[in-house]
Amino acid sequence: MQAEETQANEYTHIKRKALNWRFSAGKNASHFCRLAWALGITHHPLQQMRIQYEEKTFEGYFNTELARRGNFYFPPGQVQEGSIGADAIVMSKSRWLFRRLGHPYWFRMPFKGMSYREIAEEMELHLGREISNIPDIQGNILFQYKRSEYMVKPSAEEWPHWNEPYFRYDIYPEQQKLLEHLHTKFSNQVLIVYAAPAVQDVGELVDLYVGNQLISRTNFRPSHELAGHKRNTFVEPGAHSWACSDPVRLDPFRFDEALKSLHRPELDIRSAVTSLANDIEEVLLRSPLARPFRTLLRQFGLQDLGADTPLLKAYIKMSAARDITGLQWVIAHAGDARSDA
């Protein structure tokens, strides 16, 4: 019994020394990894600590904080549930349904109802009034949200570039190719950026959201700068990044400065919105996402809309684009575009 206790104490002592070595191993950490794996300190040499929150949670909190700033406009169909305050619109003659809604009838329905075209025309008027209240736009922004992983093991692939814990997110080839195509199409007229939080857990995420500090803890990186890479890594949100697999050090990127450098559209705001939607549609219809994009457009009834509803058609196209790509479209106001990011 005493021998077993002595052996256990020695084992604990070795583990403690190995853990202390871990933080001083630096680039020579491979020997520690083998030892730690053998001792059961880690389940696998490449294990990392994953962020414990959902990407959609970060996206929702980020959008809410951005909207609070007052100089960014979220078009209907992007974050809001429709532009007329309704999640769904239906036409029904069911007596049971109207009775449940507090409007029972027997022979004559209590409401006349509206055709799809009448609803579309009303929505077009509403969108026109809404967009006319927006100041001249500074430019369009397309956000591609990412959930970071927090890498804490010296065995992590990009550790030699940092020699300390760091954040990273994966770059998906098909998604990246689409973003590069959009960048080529729009050049400096549309800012297309990855947005990834430098946040370790859901508790910190919530605290930053409540304190309106989440954007300041978000790393922004123009998508075209990551061409040819499979990951982006960073330690602090406003500092430099290392893009991998062929390592490239990327200079710090300031979101607010990038907004100022955007070229303001020469078109009026209505024409600018419809032009952007048409260009996005053109790119998607030439991409591998063409089939699901067309399917969504049919589902949204785009084919039933006429030339008298250009804004509604534009918003439908951008909403469908968001559904299949995850790209968040935001309009920055001219003259007020500013950020603490």
Rank of each mutant, 00 (worst) to 15 (best):
P247G: 10
G211S: 12
G228K: 03
T295D: 14
P288F: 09
V206P: 00
I280T: 07
D256V: 10
L259N: 06
H240E: 15
L267I: 01
I215P: 02
L289M: 13
P197Q: 00
F253Q: 06
G211M: 05
R294S: 11
S275Y: 03
L296D: 05
A258F: 08
H240S: 13
V206S: 07
V210K: 13
G238R: 06
I269F: 06
P252Y: 10
L259K: 07
P222V: 05
N212D: 15
Q213L: 10
E281D: 15
H240P: 09
V273M: 09
I280R: 02
D246H: 06
R270I: 04
V199H: 00
N212H: 13
N232A: 14
V202I: 09
D256Q: 13
R254K: 10
L296I: 08
V248H: 05
L214M: 08
V273Y: 03
S216I: 03
F293M: 11
R286Y: 02
L208P: 02
V235E: 06
D268F: 01
N219E: 04
R264T: 10
P237K: 04
A227K: 09
A272K: 02
R231H: 14
L289E: 06
E225F: 10
E266F: 08
F234H: 11
C244P: 00
P222R: 11
K260I: 06
A227W: 03
L205P: 00
H224I: 13
F253M: 03
V210R: 13
R294D: 12
Q200D: 03
V202D: 11
P222N: 11
E257L: 09
F234R: 05
P252L: 09
A290V: 04
D251N: 09
V283K: 02
T218E: 06
A258L: 12
E282K: 08
V202F: 03
D207M: 09
G228E: 05
A258P: 03
A198W: 01
E281S: 15
E225G: 01
G203L: 05
A277H: 01
L259Q: 12
C244E: 05
A239T: 05
D279W: 02
N278M: 09
S223R: 04
L267C: 04
E236F: 11
S275V: 04
E225W: 12
Q200G: 00
D279R: 08
S245N: 07
L262S: 10
A290H: 08
N219I: 00
P288R: 08
L276M: 11
L297C: 12
E236Y: 11
S261K: 13
P247C: 13
A272Q: 08
L214G: 03
H229G: 03
E266A: 11
L250K: 07
R217P: 01
L297N: 08
D279N: 12
E257N: 07
P292V: 11
R264V: 10
D246E: 13
